[in-house]
Write a protein that binds this DNA or RNA. Structure first.
Lengths: 348, 348
DNA sequence: ACCTCCCTTTTACGCGTGTAAAGATAGGAG
DNA sequence: CTCCTATCTTTACACGCGTAAAAGGGAGGT
């Protein structure tokens, strides 16, 4: 059980009886050496305990096999869902993921991308903080290595950076259309103006409403706190409105599920989930994203489900593609938009 | 805006006009060089773009400033809350966090700790998968560098490893006692037998119930799926029981909030949240942990709040302490138990 | 002006591995 | 048995920086 510990490849080479360069090649690709040799090494490795030094191996390789991922927050299951998809895809591609959270702070976000630069990462996946992001730092990195925006992007500042996310136009139209067909046209509870999704979803809502011949109504979106406490924010806004008797018999489309959860909470407290004739809901609330917890709400949340699996895999794929053909001059930017799916449950 | 890019410290030294060793010392501690020199370097750094190579700097230092964190899952806000606390504490201590998720797979967990070994991490914080963890791999790492279990631990296999978590005895007693005082004594909906918390909380419940002179009742806990889909699991179990008319007027203490969320969902579907005389709840459900989303449930979840902030900080603190006095022979293991706080809301 | 002390520079080596080039060796074909 | 070729060993250098030792330089005190 207590195998002898070997610290360097040099020692290992004498212990096994194979030269160090051969070992080096073996570790990078066991098939690059003769099968009898690779077998000999394999057996040798079972007798000792040796792990190649992480730093030394990555320092000289042209490709480090590292992919950095930066998210604005980790206390959000939507982001962790994405992260899980990314990690799974990365494992399959034999890449190592380095995750960093910005904690909502642009300075931390900047430090994170620079650290990834200093690690010679093969690529970077960033869900930007949004309006507050340090554009200079991000564009510097984007110019140096494969870079993908995920979830939202800096459309104005960095228009040419690859992007993977949901087609907000499609997703919002989908659910808006559904709501209009099945009841009163929805008002829109927007999210704080944090990132491109905020603007795009609102715009998509307005466009679809007009298209359907309805008047779009945006519920005021004053930002309080750090802007990422969606549930509390939505709860506060809706509680205030419900208290004054507004929107109590309406349809409310929320820009994301976390807002919807806050809105549901407010509605429940005001006892607004009674049923009308034929058991139809009087107050309806819908979301966007399909957070893992949305299905367990009461009423279970009707929402437009983002394809986090596809988005995460897509981000990794874009990077690996860029790596493969890194020889060619930088191509046109890739904008990969995935469609959302309607998830009809109870709330609308 | 386009500063000249400098790749090595060598180039930087000629560009600034300071020797390379002096730069090296400056980067490790700007105050270790004369103030006039540090000022000169600072100004020089503003004119160019240079980031020290991450690998090269860590390779030779005796201390890498890296701390590895391994969690069984990232799609759980309890873990990400812990992670956030850890990251915050680490930033203050000038440490870099490397996060790895096991994705519920022991093989990945093992690979993660070995990777941390190969990075010469200064310490490792592990929330173990539990029963499935690769004990050999974990103990190997624990023998090589500062190692802390967080949240749960491998009590039998690795009894001497440092641990930070919640005092389940205290927390479960606290809420059990509260429930008994305010209504019918609770039955206990345990979590699948994944880790030490599973056993400890159940045992604590039984002990406290007996202490109070009540008969403990454990709701059967058959594991289905991977065991980590708590909400779905609890929903299935309770839905089945409620359907058969069981426990519809009881008090249910759930081993964690995610179970409680599933239970609430089941109860809501069966319309079990009516009120008795004086507006008191007939069916009561309580949780444990205080997940970030628990307060937004309907009814808002009454629970025992773990002090994730203190636990996260505690883990980092233990590691830094171990590092500081690494000279002395390994002391006794540290078991740091934090108390939970009762969070009375609506559900019980 | 001299000496001392502190900081810096110079010089040199080391970390653990990648990698290239040249020489040595084994296995297979003829 | 000889020769060729794929593979291995040997040798050497590189990566970017940490770090130690010795030598150099400047400021302050006398």
């Amino acid at each position: 059980m207590n195998k002898p510990k070997i610290n360097t490849m040099e020692e290992l080479s004498t212990a096994i009886g194979v030269s160090r360069p051969t070992l080096s090649r073996y570790f990078q690709d066991p098939d690059s050496v003769r099968s009898s040799t690779s077998e000999k090494i394999r057996r040798g490795l079972e007798r000792v305990e040796y792990i190649p030094n992480f730093f030394a191996t990555r320092m000289n390789r042209k490709t480090t096999g590292l992919i950095g991922v930066i998210f604005p927050h980790l206390k959000d299951l939507f982001f962790t869902s994405l992260l899980e998809a990314i990690e799974t895809a990365a494992m399959e591609a034999d890449l190592t993921i380095i995750t960093q959270s910005s904690h909502g702070d642009p300075a931390i976000e900047t430090r994170a991308v620079e650290q990834l630069l200093s690690m010679n990462a093969d690529g970077v996946i960033v869900a930007p903080l949004g309006e507050n992001s340090d554009v200079d730092a991000l564009s510097r990195v984007a110019g140096r290595l494969p870079f993908v925006f995920i979830d939202s992007r800096l459309r104005d500042a960095l228009p040419d950076v690859d992007f993977v996310g949901t087609d907000n136009r499609q997703s919002v139209s989908l659910i808006t259309d559904y709501l209009c067909r099945t009841g009163s046209p929805p008002v829109f509870l927007g999210m704080p103006r944090l990132n491109s999704n905020s603007f795009e979803r609102e715009a998509a809502y307005i466009a679809e409403m007009k298209h359907l011949g309805h008047d779009p109504v945006i519920v005021s979106t004053n930002i309080k706190g750090d802007g990422w406490a969606f549930e509390a924010y939505a709860h506060e806004v809706m509680d205030d409105l419900f208290s004054r008797g507004h929107l109590t018999e309406s349809t409310i489309l929320c820009a994301n599920d976390r807002l919807a959860i806050g809105a549901i909470r407010a509605a429940s407290r005001h006892g607004l989930f009674s049923r009308g004739r034929e058991g139809r809901r009087i107050l309806r609330i819908a979301g966007h994203d399909d957070h893992p917890s949305s299905r367990f709400m009461t009423p279970a949340l009707t929402t437009a489900a983002q394809d986090t699996e596809a988005i995460g895999r897509g981000a990794v794929r874009i990077l690996t593609e860029r790596l493969r053909k890194s020889s060619g001059a930088s191509d046109k930017p890739v904008f990969q938009l995935h469609e959302a799916v309607l998830r009809v449950r109870e709330s609308a």
